Computed example of a mutant assay.
Amino acid sequence: MMRWMMTLLAGLLTAVAADAHEAAGQHGGRTTDVGAYHVELVAKGETVDLFVTNAKQEPVSAGGFKGAAILVLGGKATRIPLAPAEGNRLSGTAPMALGERPKGAVQLTGPDGATANGKLH
């Protein structure tokens, strides 16, 4: 299982589109492009929130989306499932407290079933 997680993390980190970028978001998190969407990852304590917007930075309802944050925690890749919450937010809980800038990647599956990945620095 751990080998699979490390392989997935390595694949996600290398499969990110060349035009993806990262900057500070409106919720204080880091942003990156994930396929056709722009996302912002906010980590507080054990909570991981992912805010989804379109290319024009307009909120996109999280209904119908699913996602995962694959973050490095304690030196190991940890997959944190993210489920729709209110508005344009998907949320999940990590097994331990995260720093404000955990390293890893995010995976987002849209209502149409298309899955895309984005790398966090």
Score class of each variant (00 low, 15 high):
residue 49 D to S: 15
residue 43 A to T: 13
residue 36 A to P: 15
residue 60 V to C: 11
residue 108 L to N: 00
residue 94 A to Q: 04
residue 52 V to Y: 00
residue 78 T to F: 05
residue 107 Q to E: 12
residue 80 I to H: 08
residue 34 V to Q: 00
residue 93 T to E: 11
residue 66 K to R: 15
residue 99 G to C: 05
residue 109 T to V: 11
residue 53 T to W: 03
residue 104 G to F: 03
residue 37 Y to K: 06
residue 46 E to N: 15
residue 62 A to I: 07
residue 40 E to L: 05
residue 87 G to C: 10
residue 79 R to M: 11
residue 73 L to Y: 10
residue 89 R to N: 07
residue 102 P to S: 08
residue 44 K to I: 08
residue 102 P to L: 04
residue 101 R to H: 13
residue 60 V to G: 09
residue 46 E to G: 03
residue 98 L to V: 10
residue 94 A to M: 07
residue 53 T to A: 08
residue 49 D to C: 07
residue 96 M to V: 07
residue 45 G to S: 06
residue 63 G to H: 14
residue 41 L to D: 02
residue 84 P to I: 04
residue 56 K to P: 00
residue 82 L to W: 09
residue 67 G to Q: 04
residue 52 V to L: 00
residue 100 E to D: 07
residue 96 M to L: 09
residue 33 D to A: 07
residue 74 G to A: 10
residue 45 G to H: 13
residue 37 Y to T: 02
residue 51 F to R: 00
residue 94 A to L: 03
residue 92 G to E: 09
residue 41 L to T: 11
residue 93 T to Q: 14
residue 47 T to D: 15
residue 51 F to I: 00
residue 54 N to R: 11
residue 61 S to K: 13
residue 57 Q to P: 00
residue 79 R to T: 08
residue 107 Q to S: 14
residue 100 E to Q: 13
residue 58 E to S: 09
residue 71 L to A: 03
residue 61 S to T: 10
residue 84 P to N: 11
residue 88 N to M: 03
residue 50 L to D: 07
residue 81 P to S: 07
residue 77 A to W: 08
residue 38 H to I: 00
residue 66 K to Q: 12
residue 75 G to Q: 13
residue 75 G to E: 15
residue 59 P to V: 13
residue 101 R to L: 15
residue 38 H to N: 12
residue 66 K to G: 15
residue 98 L to N: 10
residue 81 P to A: 09
residue 50 L to A: 05
residue 66 K to E: 15
residue 40 E to G: 05
residue 84 P to H: 04
residue 109 T to Q: 12
residue 59 P to K: 03
residue 62 A to M: 07
residue 36 A to D: 12
residue 66 K to F: 14
residue 83 A to H: 06
residue 81 P to T: 04
residue 109 T to E: 13
residue 99 G to D: 14
residue 99 G to N: 08
residue 107 Q to G: 06
residue 88 N to H: 06
residue 47 T to E: 14
residue 74 G to D: 14
residue 37 Y to F: 06
residue 101 R to G: 11
residue 76 K to H: 14
residue 42 V to P: 12
residue 108 L to H: 02
residue 76 K to A: 14
residue 78 T to R: 01
residue 94 A to C: 06
residue 103 K to L: 13
residue 100 E to M: 11
residue 65 F to S: 01
residue 45 G to R: 11
residue 68 A to G: 12
residue 53 T to I: 02
residue 83 A to P: 00
residue 74 G to C: 05
residue 34 V to L: 01
residue 48 V to D: 01
residue 88 N to E: 06
residue 91 S to W: 02
residue 102 P to N: 07
residue 50 L to H: 12
residue 56 K to S: 14
residue 78 T to L: 04
residue 51 F to K: 00
residue 108 L to C: 02
residue 69 A to V: 08
residue 60 V to T: 06
residue 36 A to N: 08
residue 83 A to I: 04
residue 67 G to D: 05
residue 87 G to N: 13
residue 63 G to Q: 14
residue 96 M to I: 06
residue 37 Y to L: 03
residue 58 E to T: 03
residue 34 V to T: 04
residue 95 P to W: 01
residue 106 V to N: 03
residue 106 V to I: 09
residue 81 P to N: 11
residue 63 G to E: 14
residue 71 L to D: 07
residue 101 R to V: 12
residue 96 M to T: 12
residue 42 V to I: 14
residue 61 S to E: 10
residue 33 D to C: 07
residue 59 P to D: 06
residue 106 V to L: 06
residue 64 G to K: 03
residue 93 T to W: 08
residue 32 T to E: 00
residue 104 G to L: 01
residue 89 R to D: 10
